[in-house]
Amino acid sequence: MTTAVERQGAFQFKGPVTLVGPEIKVGDTAPDFTVVANDLSAVSLADSKGTVRIISVVPSLDTGVCDAQTRRFNEEAAKLDGVTILTVSVDLPFGQKRWCGAAGIEKVQTVSDYKDLSFGTAYGVLIKEFRLLSRAVFVVDANDKVVYAEYVPAAGEHPNYEAAIAAAQAAK
């Protein structure tokens, strides 16, 4: 068994924390993953192959910045035909479904990495100390190439929405 890469101090969450997994860079082939949809079905990167994907990663939908980030990408989705938007967290699928209903989120698909941490370890966003995901945004083109990668340095900061959206539009 191989040991996962650990990046100490790579994210600020109540102080510096360790992210587990590699740092994904523009030009990399996007790693596949298996997460859980709100109906408990499995979702993988391959399920949306052939479309541009924005993958928005948040620690928990029940926090202010994560809530705002998911709402912002939901609003942008109306202007981004042919783009699949996923929000990944380790919130349980039941909680994600409840949150989406209360927030009126219909264009972003929320998926949970609670089961295997498959996404978190593949994309280098798993916070070792808390078993949560750090804040990040990835844009993957229709051929599974990463065209945008942003690891937000601290939990309380927002990602660069405009840059992620521009990357998704350019990849179409």
Rank of each mutant, 00 (worst) to 15 (best):
F119N: 05
V147L: 11
E129M: 08
A78N: 10
V5C: 00
K107Q: 13
D113V: 04
H158A: 15
V65T: 15
E75L: 14
K14L: 11
G27N: 10
K172Y: 12
A10D: 01
Q12C: 14
N38S: 13
L19D: 01
D28N: 12
I54D: 03
A170L: 10
T2D: 14
T84P: 06
S56D: 15
A46S: 15
R72Y: 13
S89G: 05
Q169M: 08
K115H: 11
S134G: 09
D39C: 06
T34A: 15
T87V: 09
A46T: 15
V5K: 09
I85Y: 04
V152P: 01
T121Y: 12
D91S: 06
V152Q: 00
Y123A: 05
R135N: 03
V26M: 10
V90Q: 04
E129K: 07
L40H: 14
A166V: 10
K115V: 06
E157N: 12
V35W: 01
V152D: 00
Y151C: 00
A77G: 07
P93C: 10
V125W: 03
L61N: 14
Y161I: 01
R71L: 14
A30T: 04
V35H: 00
V88M: 02
A170P: 09
I127M: 08
V152G: 01
P93S: 12
G156V: 11
D47F: 13
E75S: 15
A122L: 06
R7E: 02
F130E: 07
E106L: 09
A122I: 04
L61E: 08
L92S: 08
D39N: 14
T121K: 15
L133W: 02
W99I: 01
V88W: 00
V125C: 05
V88Y: 01
P159C: 00
G15R: 13
S60H: 05
V83S: 03
D141F: 04
T70C: 15
P59H: 07
F119S: 07
S134W: 02
A149F: 02
V152S: 00
A103Y: 07
A164H: 03
A168C: 12
A136Q: 02
A68W: 11
G82D: 11
D62N: 15
A166H: 09
D39A: 09
Y148D: 04
G50L: 05
Q109T: 12
G156F: 08
L126D: 04
D116V: 08
T3Y: 12
N74H: 08
F13M: 14
K128N: 05
D113W: 04
I127L: 07
E162T: 13
A102R: 13
Q8C: 10
G101P: 11
T3S: 13
A168T: 06
E75P: 08
C66I: 09
D113H: 03
R131F: 13
N143D: 14
S118K: 09
E157C: 12
G50K: 08
D141P: 00
N74Q: 11
K145V: 06
Q8R: 13
S60A: 14
N143C: 10
P16F: 10
V83D: 03
T63G: 01
G124N: 03
D141S: 03
V88N: 02
V90K: 04
Q109H: 06
G104C: 07
R7Q: 01
V139R: 02
A102H: 10
Y161L: 01
E76S: 15
R7A: 00
V58A: 06
A168G: 10
G21M: 02
R72Q: 12
A166N: 11
A142Q: 12
